[in-house]
Design a protein around this nucleic acid. Structure first.
Length: 403
DNA sequence: CGTCCACAGGAATGACGGGCGG
DNA sequence: CCGCCCGTCATTCCTGTGGACG
């Protein structure tokens, strides 16, 4: 008992006397810095595209693509913020509206978000989608304003709910008399463009903006800029920044990842009561980020998904890889042990796809000729991270304690 | 060179809980 | 309170298919 108090006491005093961070929020993904290094070109392009809004005419729709962490969202939010400030100055009514369609991945929820931006409260369920849309348009039109709707990560929206809402929004001019809507679509999936309805493609792709990945040197610049604000003098060294930059560049130049790495490394250093962040802390952070992600993703999965995942872990542990058929058999065994009814193979097939999408496993369709077509499944994250995550579930953990 | 395996994955449908407007 | 609509999980039935085997 007294031990616990000591531990806590230590943590608290460590946090207080920490000489690591001055302002750690600067490293968070949603922080928008005043300067975005190596994105000057994109900023000025987007700026000139949106500028007509200040004169009251509708800017072209824009399609932005680039991989994750290439600054698409940051640049867009930054430009929008500046545009909005300018519009206020000039007394022009511009309504910026940012929707992340990874969270709001249905047509209805997108409309809900757009409505919020014009000050319309809609029930989050209960009325027909088309009715919600009509109400939204009516309110917007009464405002005599230019709405700039940013739909971030639209691949999620399109995959789940199709591109109908995109079509309607880009064509909304027909249904509005005074107000206007410009759409900025952001995606990191380049193939998405081909899946879109050609009409959407042409109207949304009036202008395309590409965000190339950062290289290691550029990432280092970004980290440097933020580190100056985030860390106490002397708490961080160039080696550490370079390592974070290099590790993130190895993925695909993902700035978000680089910043996460740096922040978590700092947090670990702080926890340990260290005086400065070391290379070692960065490697620990690398691991911690992965485990956290897995635990979080797994925790929100329904029971059957967890069971399928456990079946996969068992089989992969044994053979290094597995197939859909094997997984289904093993999954049936597991649910029988728990005395739970099992779902059909069709459903398990979908669950495997879902796990693949979440990046927990990797599943590739292959044909084994005479022996049929199946998916070869391997783990995409460390096994012990998954097991630790699954153990959190009271039902699933019974299967561990047994044997 | 055609078969046919072992699934992939689309379409239609339904049960269910949540939450509205009237 | 009812009727309606939503999203989610699941089922049933289905057509499609790469390539090793015969």
């Amino acid at each position: 008992m007294p031990n616990e108090i000591d531990v806590l006491d230590k943590i608290f005093t460590n946090a207080l006397k920490s000489r690591i961070f001055i302002n750690r929020d600067v490293l968070r993904p949603d922080y928008i810095p005043d300067e975005l290094p190596h994105r000057e070109e994109q900023i000025s392009k987007l700026g000139s595209i949106l500028a007509p809004a200040l004169k009251g005419s509708k800017p072209n729709n824009v399609f932005i693509y680039g991989l994750t962490g290439t600054g698409k969202t940051a640049v867009t939010k930054y430009v929008l913020k500046r545009l909005y400030a300018k519009a206020l100055e000039l007394g022009i009514d511009i309504i910026p509206c940012y929707v992340n369609t990874r969270q709001d991945n249905t047509t209805y929820r997108v409309i809900l978000k757009l409505s919020e931006c014009v000050g319309l409260k809609l029930p989050f369920t209960g009325i027909a989608t088309s009715e919600a849309y009509r109400r939204f348009l009516r309110i917007l039109d009464s405002k005599n304003a230019i709405m700039i709707a940013v739909l971030d990560e639209i691949d999620f929206l399109v995959k789940r709910s199709g591109d109908e809402i995109l079509y309607r929004l880009t064509r909304s001019g027909d249904e509005l008399s005074t107000s206007k809507i410009s759409v900025i679509g952001i995606t990191n999936d380049l193939k998405l463009v081909e899946e879109l309805d050609p009409r959407v493609k042409s109207s949304l792709g009036e202008i395309e903006l590409v965000f190339p990945p950062y290289n290691a040197l550029q990432l280092e610049d970004i980290l440097m800029q933020r580190a100056k604000l985030a860390f106490a003098p002397g708490a961080i060294s160039k080696d550490v920044l370079s390592l974070c930059a290099a590790l993130a560049a190895r993925e695909h130049g993902d700035a978000r990842r680089a910043l996460d790495l740096l922040r978590v490394a700092g947090e670990i250093a702080e926890r340990e009561g260290a005086e400065k962040v070391t290379v070692d802390h960065v490697y620990k952070a690398l691991r911690e980020i992965e485990v956290d992600r897995v635990v979080e993703v797994v925790a929100s999965m329904p029971l059957h998904t967890k069971l399928v995942l456990l079946a996969i872990v068992d089989l992969v542990k044994k053979n290094g890889k597995t197939t859909t058929g094997e997984v289904y058999m093993q999954y049936k065994n597991l649910s029988a042990k728990l005395g739970i009814e099992n779902v059909t193979q069709r459903r398990v097939s979908d669950i495997i796809s879902e796990l693949d999408m979440m990046g927990i496993i990797s599943a590739t369709v292959i044909s084994r000729g005479r022996y049929g077509k199946t998916r070869i499944i391997t783990l995409a994250v460390p096994e012990d991270a998954i097991i630790r995550a699954l153990n959190e579930d009271p039902y699933v953990s019974q299967l561990f304690s047994r044997s």
